[in-house]
């Protein structure tokens, strides 16, 4: 049976296999090496352009630790929970001293939440309208769809803080600029997502509504909206989480909320006030995330039960 091991070409199959394998490995190695070289080249270029040099790091890194050391609160166990003293001040080392401006922060955090809520409601409303105009299957006319899609791309392409910068110039320093900036960006981001949901909706109910003599609005309201509403709600809740984060930072350019205080504190002080306000922001963001996650889950749960 010796000739069983011979291929018709008269070659040893083991040798043939080995040769193929070697070729395959060589090809893959070359491609991988090329990619690795590209990757390393890009990394080297990036390190050079970003000025991420050892000397910069050597001088910079110790300063990071120094800075974080200086902004940590220092507690004194003797007076940790002490109230105000005779002069109406908290003793250094107490929590009261650390959170001297607690009520100011709380007011600003409240404002931040309101900004996010208003912006989410307005942005969602705008996004609903724009998504029906932008979705390819529901757009009333081709050119309307194109304009709506370009507009949505612009709104979500420009970061909210840039809109805020411009709007602060327009309406002045204060939360209005922030609300409007976040509204515009959220409308862009949600409008894109919504229009994708609409494009995946069944068009049969729309045909049905058309046949009863429904206008475009009625076709959308009765044919599409009931299908997409659960997804819309879930996306809007998720957007609220993002908007809370955004409204906490638009204050960096003067657009209201806790961000103004945050930026002021970080820029002008390097003591425990920085961690005090940062901690509150982290708590705010985490709490909103948890709440919204729970709301979304109960929403999905309700859907699944139906």
């Amino acid at each position: 049976m010796a000739d069983m091991s011979q291929t018709p070409g008269g070659q040893d199959p083991v040798a043939l296999f080995e040769r193929h394998r070697a070729q395959l490995i060589r090809d893959r190695m070359t491609a991988n090496l090329l990619l690795l070289a590209l990757f390393i080249g890009f990394l080297a270029w990036s390190i050079w352009i970003a000025d991420f040099m050892p000397d910069r790091l050597a001088s910079g890194v110790p300063r990071i630790f120094e800075y974080f050391g200086s902004v940590m609160p220092s507690f004194d166990t003797d007076v940790l929970f002490d109230g105000r003293n005779a002069e109406g001040k908290f003793p250094p080392g107490s929590i009261g001293f650390w959170y001297n401006d607690f009520w100011k922060y709380i007011t600003l955090i409240w404002e931040t939440i309101l900004m996010a809520l208003t912006a989410t409601l307005l942005g969602t409303g705008l996004a609903v309208v724009l998504s029906f105009l932008a979705a390819r299957n529901t757009t009333p006319a081709g050119w309307v769809g194109t304009i709506a899609r370009r507009f949505l791309e612009f709104c979500r392409g420009v970061p909210e803080i840039l809109f805020a910068l411009v709007l602060v110039f327009w309406v002045g320093i204060g939360p209005l600029a922030g609300v409007l900036a976040i509204t515009i960006h959220a409308a862009g981001a949600l409008g894109k997502l919504f229009s994708e949901v609409v494009e995946n909706a069944s068009m049969r109910p729309v045909d049905g509504m058309k046949a009863v003599g429904g206008s475009w609005f009625e076709q959308m309201r009765y044919g599409i909206l009931p299908q997409v509403l659960p997804n819309f709600t879930s996306y809007a809740l998720w957007r609220f989480e993002i908007n809370v984060r955004a409204s906490a930072v638009v204050g960096f350019v003067g657009a209201g909320g806790i961000g103004t205080e945050l930026s002021h504190t970080i820029s002008f002080y390097s003591d425990d006030r920085v961690t005090a306000v940062l901690l509150l922001v982290v708590l705010l963001v985490t709490a909103i995330d948890l709440l919204s996650e729970r709301a979304r889950h109960s929403l999905i749960g309700k859907e699944a039960l139906k």
């Binding site: 049969r204 109910p205 045909d207 049905g208 046949a211 009863v212 003599g213 009625e218 009765y222």
Partner: peptide, 28 residues
């Protein structure tokens, strides 16, 4: 279109609304 009603092969009702609302949508 309101004067000439249509019934479809796939019914073309709004699945997520209740039956009554679907029927009443004929009055829209």
């Amino acid at each position: 279109r309101n004067e000439c009603a249509m019934v479809f092969q796939q019914f073309n009702l709004v699945g997520r609304l209740d039956v009554l609302t679907n029927v009443m949508s004929g009055r829209l």
